[in-house]
Amino acid sequence: MTHILETRQLNKRFGGLHVTGNVDFALDAGEMHCLIGPNGAGKSTFFRLILGEHLPDSGQILFQDQDITRAKPFQRIRQGISVKFQVPGIFKELSVRQNLVIALQHHVDPRLLAEEIDRLLEFLNLSHAQAQLAGNLSHGQKQWLEIGMAIGLKPRLLLLDEPTAGMTPDETHATGEMLKQLNAEGMTLLAVEHDMAFVRQIAQRVTVLHLGKVFAQGSIDQITADPRVAKIYLGEVDA
């Protein structure tokens, strides 16, 4: 199995705080992987390192066997990584449609752009809202819009930071099905998630991050059966 993403001994400190410590992590091409861990475990920071928003203090990041440790964020995106942030990052004062135009214009033929966006709006269930300002959408719709912008780039690897936060159970389930469809089309997914039902719905493998370190890894059944994992969520283990 080839790795689409690999981190080697990745370290990041903020002042005295060791946010990621020697993270060795590998993601198989084509898999759906969930990253879980208590608040403050360093999950979002790990994403930011992969994206280049932060640079690591030491260690290496490989994407499709290329070293991207020092690449600029926009270069990593162009190589095929895309992200949905934890806090919805949309263009609030622009229409829903315009948000998608900006995401797609740079790699879609202008003659096909309108059609492509119609299809994406349909997929996201946002066709009726396309003329609204993105800032006026409900929280769940904002999440979907941003997922739409992220997948509009047709990435090889999609990073999702808490994609279902604030969604109703129905919306969460629909999101899961949407992601499974994308995965079936060949997209590799790495999602940070708290909702265990959702993790069960989509994840083939799960990694637990705790205090900036890989704490456990395995199938969802192995992880939920692991008593040490249950304990860190109750705050009883500190290493």
Partner: peptide, 12 residues
């Protein structure tokens, strides 16, 4: 509107 989002769509 959101420079980080714009950069994370692949724009320099």
């Amino acid at each position: 509107e959101n420079p980080l989002r714009a950069e994370m769509l692949g724009y320099d």
